[in-house]
Amino acid sequence: MDTDMQAPPGAPRYVAMTCRDSGDYRIAAESPYLQPVDYAVGEMARAITSQGSDLRVELWGPSESNTWCILDRRHYRGIGASHNAANAGVHTLTAREQREYDRRYQLLAAALNRSSVEATPTEIAVVAEHLSTDGARTVTSWLDAAGEGH
């Protein structure tokens, strides 16, 4: 384990440890399964970076010998003042546009889950951002059809 911090307490499971401005790591999400922890990290990153803060995350989990190991390290950069000034003309979503985006995201996430395709929340968000609602429904129908073949 090459890390500056200690492994999370207890038996190995999937754990997201976050580090913010103070430098202290805390357990932010934990589960016996990777997908809920990965989803929580994506949502936390979106919320924290939108406030202008940085977020560092270490994803811990069980190794093949059932001991702790670091599975991934991520650093999310906050949207700072310089970024905001550079993108002053960027369109922000209206409440309706946000609801439509959320709906596309939910459609895609559910279809990926049903078809047993693993994707991170960030990957789903990128796809949802670039599809129309009809496009998202088309993709979900393809995923559902592909999932029935298994």
Rank of each mutant, 00 (worst) to 15 (best):
Y105V: 00
R104G: 00
A125D: 08
R104C: 05
G135D: 03
Y105N: 02
I79Q: 11
E30K: 08
A85C: 04
T120N: 00
E97A: 09
L59A: 03
V126W: 11
S82V: 11
T120W: 04
A110G: 10
V57G: 01
S63G: 09
A146P: 02
R77I: 15
A88C: 04
T92I: 15
V127D: 04
A125L: 07
S63N: 09
R99P: 01
R137K: 15
D72T: 12
T92D: 14
E30G: 02
A136I: 01
Y39A: 13
G147H: 04
S82C: 07
H83Y: 13
Q106G: 06
G135A: 05
L108S: 01
A85Q: 11
N113Q: 05
R96T: 13
L143V: 00
P121C: 02
R26D: 12
G23Q: 04
T92N: 14
L59I: 15
R104W: 00
S132R: 01
H83A: 12
S22I: 04
W68V: 05
R26E: 13
E58Y: 07
Y25I: 03
R137M: 11
M44I: 03
Y33T: 12
E97S: 03
Y25L: 06
A119E: 10
A81H: 14
R99E: 13
T120L: 04
S82H: 11
P62L: 03
G23S: 03
G149T: 11
I124W: 00
